[in-house]
Design a protein around this nucleic acid. Sequence first.
RNA 1: GGAGGGGUGGCUGAGCGGCCGAAAGCGACGGUCUUGAAAACCGUUGGGGCGCAAGCCCCCGUGGGUUCGAAUCCCACCCCCUCCGCCA
Length: 415
Amino acid sequence: MIDIHALRETPDRVRANCRLRGCKTDVDALIASDREYLETIRAVEDLRALRNRLGKECRDNPAARDQMRQLKQDLAAKEERLEALKKAVDEGLAWLPNFLAEDVPPGAGDADNAPLRFWGDKGDFRFKPRTHDELGDLLGIIDTGRGAKVAQSGFYYWSGAGAQLAMAMFYWAQQALVKRGFRLFMSPCLAKSRTLFGTGYLPFFAEQTYTLANEDLALIGTSEQTLVAYHADETLEAERLPLFYTAFTPCFRTEAGSWGKETRGIFRVHQFHKVEQIVFCLPEDSPRCHDLCQENEEFLLQQLGIPYRVVKVCVGDMGAPGYKKYDIEAWFPGFGGYREVTSNTNLTDFQARRLGIRFQTRDKRRDFVHTISATAITDRAACAILENFQQEDGSVIVPEVLRPYTGFDRLSPPA
RNA sequence: GGAGGGGUGGCUGAGCGGCCGAAAGCGACGGUCUUGAAAACCGUUGGGGCGCAAGCCCCCGUGGGUUCGAAUCCCACCCCCUCCGCCA
């Protein structure tokens, strides 16, 4: 949520931002509603002040009680209007996208993201490298067939050495973040609508969300939702910021509307697993913290030895809550291209404002914190491991950093 | 799931239907004192909204109701705690 004062004081900036980000909100109608809201709240407060003054007389002046009854009717009518206006303004505001960093590149989709840097050696395969799903089949470690049988198409099992590899990777990544000052959480995997609204997933990604029937609960799309909302309605001491949080959870997404996109393998699925990085910080620190999360992401991929490139995400490929976002695209030799494995978003105060997460300094400066939400690692990195470290016979070399956790250094096809 | 108890300011904890945004204690902050600290003493100490400001409005779990007037009475809901049952 943006600050409503921005709408009042710099409407042109908000209009331009909406146009740029393809927001369908009628900004002028919203401004009109807000203007009437302000008028109405002043009128209501005047009536309330009158009521409060009159109320004091009522004790020993019965005549004032009759006036009071009349006043109450007037007030009730105005309050009803006020409530309707507030609802209209809130709904309009809920759909306004965050402002953008100045250096966000223009563009409509992921093809327009701006590559920033490349890391790693793509290696040269003297055979035709297999895709992760082919390797998953060959090694017997990814089972989409049974995922569909048991749950639905779009679900899968990691099994055997593959599950060990994935769990090793997740555990290793968690530990790496803890060493870098993150506090590890195990979080709920369901959250209420207020939590999803507060983190910006509602209303913007409503169709991506699995909700439970007869409950105000949804499966989380990411632990960002539960980690950020952890501090909802709290005022954090500025001296203790920034806070670095991490969790490992499953992430559930309906992927409505992405039929036919990247259907091979387990690249786009209804349930994946993620180690997340969340930061709460002072507004002036968010660019630095954003970069810090980026370093962590790159550190992890470098340790694993996966070649990648970093792209600065363009306007059209960034969700409405985002202010600035980097993606890392890992090299997938079997696929023959770069594919997104992490993303790292500075949300500025967008989530904090919705959730009421503030900071206070010793000298009583109070404002909303900024939040950063960044991937540390997901199943997709395990897929990249498979493709990058595959051998001609289909076996896969385990990255050295994971071997203490897998207990083996190679995944081999069954004899 | 069954039975009981409870939700008030950072915490503990008072609050006859009007004088309560709310006693008191603790904590925190500022000051006096001290070489420094502690102790003692004095003072300050919730948040949100509207307004240039003075100031006004709102908030005692949430939403309704009674009343001229509700933290205080009534109803519904939510949440927490204890005991019992079931259980990873």
